[in-house]
Amino acid sequence: MSKKSVAYKGSSNYIVADELRNAVNIAIALQKPLLIKGEPGTGKTMLAQSIADSLDMDLIIWNIKSTTKAQEGLYVYDTVQRLYDSQFGEANVSDIKQYIKLGKLGESFLADEQVVLLIDEIDKADLEFPNDLLWELDQMSFYIPETKETIKAKKRPIVIITSNAEKELPDAFLRRCIFHYIAFPDPEGMEQIVKVHHPSLDKRLMEQAMETFYTLRNVPNIQKKPSTSELIDWLQALVVGGINPNRIKQEMPFLGVLLKKNEDLDTLLNQLHGKAQNRGGQQVNNLNRYYR
Protein backbone atom coordinates (compact mmCIF):
# COMPACT_ATOMS: atom_id res chain seq x y z
CA MET A 1 0.00 0.00 0.00
CA SER A 2 3.06 2.20 -0.05
CA LYS A 3 2.33 3.86 -3.36
CA LYS A 4 -1.01 5.27 -2.24
CA SER A 5 -0.72 8.97 -1.67
CA VAL A 6 -3.39 8.99 1.03
CA ALA A 7 -3.14 6.40 3.75
CA TYR A 8 -4.84 6.71 7.08
CA LYS A 9 -2.58 6.03 10.03
CA GLY A 10 -4.69 6.98 13.01
CA SER A 11 -4.49 10.20 14.97
CA SER A 12 -3.15 11.18 18.35
CA ASN A 13 -6.47 11.23 20.18
CA TYR A 14 -7.96 8.10 18.70
CA ILE A 15 -6.59 4.59 19.03
CA VAL A 16 -7.24 2.59 15.90
CA ALA A 17 -6.88 -1.17 15.60
CA ASP A 18 -4.90 -2.55 12.66
CA GLU A 19 -7.98 -4.25 11.24
CA LEU A 20 -9.97 -1.05 11.23
CA ARG A 21 -7.10 0.95 9.76
CA ASN A 22 -6.81 -1.59 6.97
CA ALA A 23 -10.51 -1.35 6.25
CA VAL A 24 -10.31 2.45 6.09
CA ASN A 25 -7.40 2.32 3.68
CA ILE A 26 -9.14 -0.24 1.51
CA ALA A 27 -12.21 1.98 1.35
CA ILE A 28 -10.10 5.02 0.46
CA ALA A 29 -8.18 3.18 -2.23
CA LEU A 30 -11.24 1.55 -3.81
CA GLN A 31 -13.27 4.76 -3.47
CA LYS A 32 -16.18 2.98 -1.86
CA PRO A 33 -18.20 3.99 1.18
CA LEU A 34 -17.07 2.36 4.42
CA LEU A 35 -19.89 0.98 6.54
CA ILE A 36 -19.00 0.76 10.24
CA LYS A 37 -21.01 -1.24 12.72
CA GLY A 38 -20.28 -1.96 16.37
CA GLU A 39 -21.49 -1.78 19.92
CA PRO A 40 -22.37 1.70 21.17
CA GLY A 41 -19.30 3.43 22.51
CA THR A 42 -16.73 1.73 20.31
CA GLY A 43 -15.93 5.01 18.59
CA LYS A 44 -17.75 4.67 15.29
CA THR A 45 -18.49 8.35 14.99
CA MET A 46 -15.08 9.38 16.29
CA LEU A 47 -13.45 7.44 13.48
CA ALA A 48 -14.52 9.95 10.84
CA GLN A 49 -13.17 12.82 12.91
CA SER A 50 -9.90 10.97 13.29
CA ILE A 51 -9.61 10.29 9.56
CA ALA A 52 -10.28 13.93 8.82
CA ASP A 53 -7.65 15.01 11.35
CA SER A 54 -5.04 12.56 10.19
CA LEU A 55 -5.46 13.32 6.48
CA ASP A 56 -5.96 17.02 7.13
CA MET A 57 -9.34 17.18 5.47
CA ASP A 58 -12.61 18.87 6.34
CA LEU A 59 -15.30 16.75 7.94
CA ILE A 60 -18.92 17.08 6.89
CA ILE A 61 -21.41 15.33 9.16
CA TRP A 62 -24.85 14.29 8.05
CA ASN A 63 -26.82 13.16 11.08
CA ILE A 64 -29.64 10.87 10.15
CA LYS A 65 -32.92 10.95 12.05
CA SER A 66 -36.02 8.87 11.64
CA THR A 67 -37.58 11.60 9.55
CA THR A 68 -34.59 12.26 7.29
CA LYS A 69 -35.24 11.82 3.60
CA ALA A 70 -32.50 11.02 1.11
CA GLN A 71 -33.47 14.09 -0.87
CA GLU A 72 -32.49 16.38 2.02
CA GLY A 73 -28.90 15.25 1.70
CA LEU A 74 -28.81 16.36 -1.90
CA TYR A 75 -30.69 19.65 -1.96
CA VAL A 76 -33.81 21.39 -0.74
CA TYR A 77 -35.86 23.67 -2.93
CA ASP A 78 -37.11 26.44 -0.67
CA THR A 79 -40.46 27.06 -2.31
CA VAL A 80 -41.85 28.90 0.70
CA GLN A 81 -39.13 31.54 0.59
CA ARG A 82 -39.78 31.94 -3.12
CA LEU A 83 -43.49 32.37 -2.55
CA TYR A 84 -42.81 34.88 0.17
CA ASP A 85 -40.43 36.83 -2.04
CA SER A 86 -42.89 36.81 -4.91
CA GLN A 87 -45.49 38.55 -2.78
CA PHE A 88 -43.51 40.86 -0.53
CA GLY A 89 -39.85 40.80 -1.45
CA GLU A 90 -37.71 42.54 -3.97
CA ALA A 91 -35.54 39.55 -4.81
CA ASN A 92 -35.56 38.25 -8.36
CA VAL A 93 -38.02 35.37 -8.12
CA SER A 94 -37.28 34.02 -11.57
CA ASP A 95 -33.80 33.06 -10.45
CA ILE A 96 -34.62 29.66 -8.98
CA LYS A 97 -31.01 28.95 -8.22
CA GLN A 98 -31.03 31.11 -5.12
CA TYR A 99 -33.77 28.96 -3.60
CA ILE A 100 -31.83 25.73 -4.02
CA LYS A 101 -30.07 24.89 -0.76
CA LEU A 102 -27.58 22.06 -1.00
CA GLY A 103 -27.69 19.31 1.61
CA LYS A 104 -24.68 17.72 3.27
CA LEU A 105 -24.04 15.32 0.42
CA GLY A 106 -24.27 18.12 -2.12
CA GLU A 107 -21.96 20.22 0.01
CA SER A 108 -19.35 17.49 0.08
CA PHE A 109 -19.57 17.14 -3.71
CA LEU A 110 -18.95 20.81 -4.30
CA ALA A 111 -16.02 21.13 -1.92
CA ASP A 112 -12.82 22.13 -3.71
CA GLU A 113 -10.64 19.83 -1.62
CA GLN A 114 -11.37 16.20 -0.85
CA VAL A 115 -13.46 15.96 2.33
CA VAL A 116 -14.58 13.23 4.71
CA LEU A 117 -18.34 12.78 4.69
CA LEU A 118 -19.85 11.07 7.73
CA ILE A 119 -23.35 9.69 7.34
CA ASP A 120 -24.12 9.00 10.97
CA GLU A 121 -26.55 6.30 12.12
CA ILE A 122 -28.00 5.48 8.75
CA ASP A 123 -30.21 2.81 10.28
CA LYS A 124 -32.31 5.46 12.03
CA ALA A 125 -33.92 6.46 8.76
CA ASP A 126 -36.68 4.82 6.80
CA LEU A 127 -36.04 1.37 5.32
CA GLU A 128 -35.86 2.76 1.82
CA PHE A 129 -33.41 5.50 2.67
CA PRO A 130 -30.17 3.71 1.73
CA ASN A 131 -31.65 2.56 -1.56
CA ASP A 132 -32.47 6.14 -2.46
CA LEU A 133 -28.80 7.06 -2.20
CA LEU A 134 -27.40 4.18 -4.28
CA TRP A 135 -26.91 6.12 -7.46
CA GLU A 136 -25.61 9.25 -5.78
CA LEU A 137 -22.99 7.37 -3.77
CA ASP A 138 -21.98 5.27 -6.75
CA GLN A 139 -21.69 8.03 -9.30
CA MET A 140 -21.07 10.88 -6.88
CA SER A 141 -23.41 13.11 -8.86
CA PHE A 142 -27.06 14.12 -8.95
CA TYR A 143 -29.40 16.17 -11.08
CA ILE A 144 -31.49 19.14 -10.01
CA PRO A 145 -34.52 19.30 -12.30
CA GLU A 146 -35.54 22.79 -11.16
CA THR A 147 -32.37 24.40 -12.47
CA LYS A 148 -31.48 21.70 -15.00
CA GLU A 149 -28.10 21.39 -13.34
CA THR A 150 -26.00 18.35 -12.58
CA ILE A 151 -23.96 18.50 -9.42
CA LYS A 152 -20.88 16.32 -9.75
CA ALA A 153 -18.26 15.70 -7.13
CA LYS A 154 -15.12 17.70 -7.80
CA LYS A 155 -13.12 15.34 -5.60
CA ARG A 156 -14.79 12.09 -4.53
CA PRO A 157 -15.33 12.48 -0.78
CA ILE A 158 -14.30 9.70 1.61
CA VAL A 159 -17.63 8.40 2.80
CA ILE A 160 -17.97 6.84 6.25
CA ILE A 161 -21.35 5.41 7.23
CA THR A 162 -22.19 4.23 10.72
CA SER A 163 -25.01 1.95 11.77
CA ASN A 164 -26.30 0.63 15.09
CA ALA A 165 -28.00 -2.30 13.45
CA GLU A 166 -31.48 -1.16 14.41
CA LYS A 167 -32.61 -2.04 10.95
CA GLU A 168 -31.19 -4.40 8.42
CA LEU A 169 -29.77 -2.47 5.47
CA PRO A 170 -30.81 -3.47 1.94
CA ASP A 171 -28.52 -5.91 0.11
CA ALA A 172 -28.08 -3.70 -2.93
CA PHE A 173 -26.70 -1.02 -0.66
CA LEU A 174 -24.44 -3.39 1.25
CA ARG A 175 -22.93 -4.72 -1.97
CA ARG A 176 -21.54 -1.28 -2.67
CA CYS A 177 -19.93 -0.79 0.71
CA ILE A 178 -16.81 -1.94 2.44
CA PHE A 179 -17.93 -3.37 5.75
CA HIS A 180 -16.19 -3.40 9.09
CA TYR A 181 -17.45 -4.43 12.49
CA ILE A 182 -15.64 -2.81 15.41
CA ALA A 183 -15.28 -5.50 18.03
CA PHE A 184 -15.27 -4.43 21.63
CA PRO A 185 -11.65 -3.67 22.64
CA ASP A 186 -9.80 -6.26 24.72
CA PRO A 187 -8.25 -5.15 28.05
CA GLU A 188 -4.91 -4.13 26.46
CA GLY A 189 -6.61 -2.12 23.75
CA MET A 190 -8.91 -0.59 26.31
CA GLU A 191 -5.95 0.43 28.45
CA GLN A 192 -4.52 2.38 25.53
CA ILE A 193 -7.85 4.07 24.89
CA VAL A 194 -8.20 5.03 28.54
CA LYS A 195 -4.70 6.46 28.56
CA VAL A 196 -5.67 8.86 25.78
CA HIS A 197 -8.42 10.25 27.98
CA HIS A 198 -6.75 9.99 31.38
CA PRO A 199 -3.00 10.23 30.70
CA SER A 200 -1.93 10.36 34.32
CA LEU A 201 -4.00 7.71 36.01
CA ASP A 202 -2.86 5.82 39.06
CA LYS A 203 -1.75 2.38 37.88
CA ARG A 204 -3.38 0.50 40.72
CA LEU A 205 -6.66 2.34 40.23
CA MET A 206 -6.61 1.57 36.54
CA GLU A 207 -5.95 -2.14 37.11
CA GLN A 208 -8.71 -2.53 39.65
CA ALA A 209 -11.20 -0.52 37.65
CA MET A 210 -10.50 -2.41 34.43
CA GLU A 211 -10.86 -5.75 36.16
CA THR A 212 -14.19 -4.74 37.66
CA PHE A 213 -15.34 -3.33 34.34
CA TYR A 214 -14.67 -6.53 32.40
CA THR A 215 -16.20 -8.65 35.16
CA LEU A 216 -19.34 -6.54 34.85
CA ARG A 217 -19.43 -6.94 31.11
CA ASN A 218 -19.22 -10.69 31.50
CA VAL A 219 -22.13 -10.97 33.92
CA PRO A 220 -24.72 -12.93 31.98
CA ASN A 221 -28.13 -11.41 31.29
CA ILE A 222 -26.99 -7.81 31.54
CA GLN A 223 -29.18 -5.96 29.07
CA LYS A 224 -27.13 -2.84 28.51
CA LYS A 225 -23.49 -3.71 28.88
CA PRO A 226 -21.26 -0.82 29.99
CA SER A 227 -19.22 0.54 27.09
CA THR A 228 -16.04 2.55 26.63
CA SER A 229 -17.61 5.93 27.26
CA GLU A 230 -19.13 4.67 30.51
CA LEU A 231 -15.77 3.33 31.65
CA ILE A 232 -14.15 6.68 30.98
CA ASP A 233 -16.85 8.52 32.89
CA TRP A 234 -16.57 6.06 35.72
CA LEU A 235 -12.81 6.51 35.97
CA GLN A 236 -13.37 10.24 36.08
CA ALA A 237 -15.84 9.76 38.91
CA LEU A 238 -13.42 7.51 40.80
CA VAL A 239 -10.64 10.07 40.49
CA VAL A 240 -12.83 13.01 41.48
CA GLY A 241 -14.34 11.03 44.35
CA GLY A 242 -10.85 10.14 45.58
CA ILE A 243 -11.70 6.47 45.92
CA ASN A 244 -9.08 4.16 47.35
CA PRO A 245 -8.16 1.67 44.59
CA ASN A 246 -8.34 -1.24 47.02
CA ARG A 247 -12.02 -0.59 47.61
CA ILE A 248 -13.08 -0.63 43.98
CA LYS A 249 -13.51 -4.35 43.51
CA GLN A 250 -15.43 -4.98 46.70
CA GLU A 251 -17.66 -1.93 46.81
CA MET A 252 -18.03 -0.94 43.18
CA PRO A 253 -18.63 2.74 43.94
CA PHE A 254 -20.67 4.91 41.54
CA LEU A 255 -22.13 1.80 39.94
CA GLY A 256 -24.88 3.92 38.42
CA VAL A 257 -22.37 5.36 35.98
CA LEU A 258 -21.74 1.92 34.53
CA LEU A 259 -25.12 0.25 34.76
CA LYS A 260 -28.02 2.41 33.71
CA LYS A 261 -30.91 0.06 34.01
CA ASN A 262 -32.59 -1.02 37.23
CA GLU A 263 -32.97 -4.56 35.93
CA ASP A 264 -29.24 -4.76 35.33
CA LEU A 265 -28.45 -3.64 38.86
CA ASP A 266 -30.82 -6.30 40.18
CA THR A 267 -29.25 -8.96 37.99
CA LEU A 268 -25.82 -8.02 39.23
CA LEU A 269 -26.88 -8.09 42.87
CA ASN A 270 -28.49 -11.48 42.37
CA GLN A 271 -25.29 -12.80 40.87
CA LEU A 272 -23.10 -11.41 43.59
CA HIS A 273 -25.19 -12.83 46.39
CA GLY A 274 -25.24 -16.28 44.95
CA LYS A 275 -28.89 -16.32 44.13
CA ALA A 276 -28.09 -17.78 40.78
CA GLN A 277 -30.29 -20.81 41.34
CA ASN A 278 -33.29 -18.53 41.58
CA ARG A 279 -32.39 -16.63 38.43
CA GLY A 280 -35.43 -15.38 36.59
CA GLY A 281 -37.65 -16.20 39.52
CA GLN A 282 -40.32 -14.01 38.07
CA GLN A 283 -40.30 -15.99 34.88
CA VAL A 284 -40.78 -19.23 36.75
CA ASN A 285 -43.99 -17.79 38.15
CA ASN A 286 -45.24 -17.24 34.66
CA LEU A 287 -45.08 -20.88 33.83
CA ASN A 288 -45.89 -22.52 37.08
CA ARG A 289 -46.94 -25.93 35.95
CA TYR A 290 -44.42 -28.52 36.84
CA TYR A 291 -45.98 -31.47 35.13
CA ARG A 292 -46.53 -31.83 31.45
Partner: peptide
Protein backbone atom coordinates in the same frame (compact mmCIF):
# COMPACT_ATOMS: atom_id res chain seq x y z
CA UNK B 1 -3.65 -8.79 4.41
CA UNK B 2 -5.73 -11.03 2.21
CA UNK B 3 -7.84 -12.07 5.18
CA UNK B 4 -8.78 -8.51 6.13
CA UNK B 5 -9.15 -7.37 2.55
CA UNK B 6 -11.45 -10.19 1.56
CA UNK B 7 -13.44 -9.92 4.78
CA UNK B 8 -13.98 -6.18 4.34
CA UNK B 9 -15.08 -6.67 0.75
CA UNK B 10 -17.10 -9.86 0.89
CA UNK B 11 -18.80 -9.82 4.28
CA UNK B 12 -21.51 -7.31 4.99
CA UNK B 13 -22.69 -8.21 8.45
CA UNK B 14 -20.93 -9.28 11.62
Amino acid sequence: GFYYLSRALLIKTE
